[in-house]
């Protein structure tokens, strides 16, 4: 895969022969590792409690919360039966995932406000510690990818 086919550079619309593309090429290793990190959180071998389609739906949801509909669309295409969760007007209760979705939204959009009680609430809802870490890794990676894409668009001169 060329670095220009990675999610970040292709969603941001960066072409090789541009100034932004040339800068990205100097960090080709970082662009490749960013894509590997996406694979690790969106499509891990050990999914824990969160199958790939659910992960894709949550990714689409966070992209939408951050106003990135292009990235959301890419993840939504892989969300299968969980696609409804990408609608930020839903709260996950229809899928019996209200605790997970509420936590996910808060970590994504109100990070500073997250406190020990939020982790305790997930544990009380029966989410294992390993699954809490998996959720945070998925959410945290998306925070990075969304901001990398937003920054690349600004470099290229696209309206935010």
């Amino acid at each position: 895969m060329s670095i220009f086919e990675t999610t970040a550079l292709s969603v941001a619309g960066i072409a090789a022969e541009t100034a932004t593309g040339a800068a990205a090429a100097t960090r080709a290793n970082i662009m490749e590792m960013t894509q590997a990190a996406e694979e690790a959180v969106l499509a891990p071998e050990d999914t824990g409690a969160f199958p790939h389609e659910l992960r894709a739906a949550l990714a689409a949801r966070v992209a939408r919360l951050n106003g990135d509909n292009a990235l959301a669309g890419r993840y939504l295409a892989k969300a299968g039966t969980f696609a409804g969760l990408a609608d930020t007007g839903t709260d996950g209760s229809a899928e019996d995932l209200a605790a997970v979705v509420g936590f996910f939204d808060k970590v994504a959009a109100r990070t500073a406000d997250v406190a020990a009680e939020d982790i305790a609430a997930l544990q009380a809802a029966g989410v294992s510690d390993a699954d809490i870490v998996r959720l945070c890794e998925l959410n945290a990676f998306l925070a990075y990818q969304i901001r990398l894409i937003a920054g690349l668009r600004l470099m290229q001169g696209d309206a935010a």
Binding site: A108, T111, V114, I119, V133, C136, N139, A140, F141
Partner: peptide, 11 residues
């Protein structure tokens, strides 16, 4: 650090 903060500050 959008990534790192969501691990360290949350977990």
């Amino acid at each position: 650090f959008g990534w790192a903060n969501r691990l360290m500050h949350v977990l």
